[in-house]
Simulated scan of single mutants.
Amino acid sequence: MSLQKDQEFLTFTLGEENYALDILTVKEIRGYESVTKIANAPPFIKGVINLRGDIVPIVDLRIKFNVGQATYDEFTIVIVLHIHNRIVGIVVDGVSDVVSLNKDQLRPPPDFGVAFDSRYLLGLATINEQMIILVDINELISSEEMGLFSSHENDVA
């Protein structure tokens, strides 16, 4: 995904870091609710919820990237995403703002120093003197390591 002119991103926090993802992937933002556990799922997949008839896997990015404290209370946030015609929820520490960025504001991702593989990063941006890590959420959620999609689904754009 290359950054288009003045693209909007939803910013969120994981631990001490600020992240952002493409606002067009966001279906809704909601509080955490109890999930139905899935046997043999990796620890970062908390389970599934029934969201108006859709079975939605819930991924805790705090556990996946080993950042932040994985607590579940009335303040826990789930960002519900629509990716590759599937709905997935991600648990984050908090949602901050919607920001508009253009490619001139973007810096290349570092090879180290962030919680996850740089192939899932679009780059870094500074907003109000805060560093924001732009996540390629489509690439991350549909990656084989997440195991949420079968490999042939990844090939469909």
Rank of each mutant, 00 (worst) to 15 (best):
V80R: 04
E16K: 13
I87R: 09
Q7F: 00
Y72A: 06
S2D: 14
M1V: 03
R107T: 12
H82G: 12
G94F: 01
T36W: 09
A115T: 08
I23N: 02
D111S: 14
N128W: 13
L51I: 02
T36C: 11
I45Q: 08
G147S: 09
V95C: 00
V78M: 04
I58N: 04
V59Q: 04
D111P: 02
G47Q: 14
Q105T: 06
D111I: 12
I83M: 08
K103Q: 14
F65D: 08
T71P: 00
G147M: 05
N128M: 15
E33S: 14
V56C: 02
L122W: 04
G53P: 08
E28V: 03
I29M: 10
I137M: 09
I79R: 06
E74V: 12
R30Y: 01
D6L: 07
G113I: 05
N128F: 15
A70M: 06
F65I: 12
I29G: 04
V95K: 05
V156F: 03
P42W: 05
F116K: 07
D155P: 00
I87L: 13
N50A: 11
T126H: 04
K103G: 07
F75G: 15
L10P: 04
L61F: 06
V80W: 09
N18D: 08
A125W: 02
Y32T: 04
T25N: 14
I137S: 12
L148P: 02
R30D: 02
E8G: 05
T71W: 02
Y32K: 01
D111N: 13
D60P: 06
I23Q: 09
P110F: 02
F65T: 15
R86V: 01
T13L: 13
I79S: 08
I38T: 10
V99F: 06
S34L: 15
G123E: 02
E8W: 01
A20G: 14
G123M: 06
D22W: 00
D93G: 09
L14Q: 07
R86N: 11
E16T: 13
V48I: 10
F112T: 15
A157R: 11
V99G: 09
D54S: 12
V91Q: 03
L24I: 15
T36Q: 12
S143W: 07
L134Y: 00
G123R: 04
K64N: 03
P109T: 13
V91S: 06
T25V: 14
F116R: 10
M131C: 11
L106V: 14
V59P: 01
I137R: 00
Q69A: 14
K37R: 15
M146K: 11
I141W: 02
E74M: 10
Y120D: 05
I58G: 01
V91H: 00
D54M: 11
I79N: 06
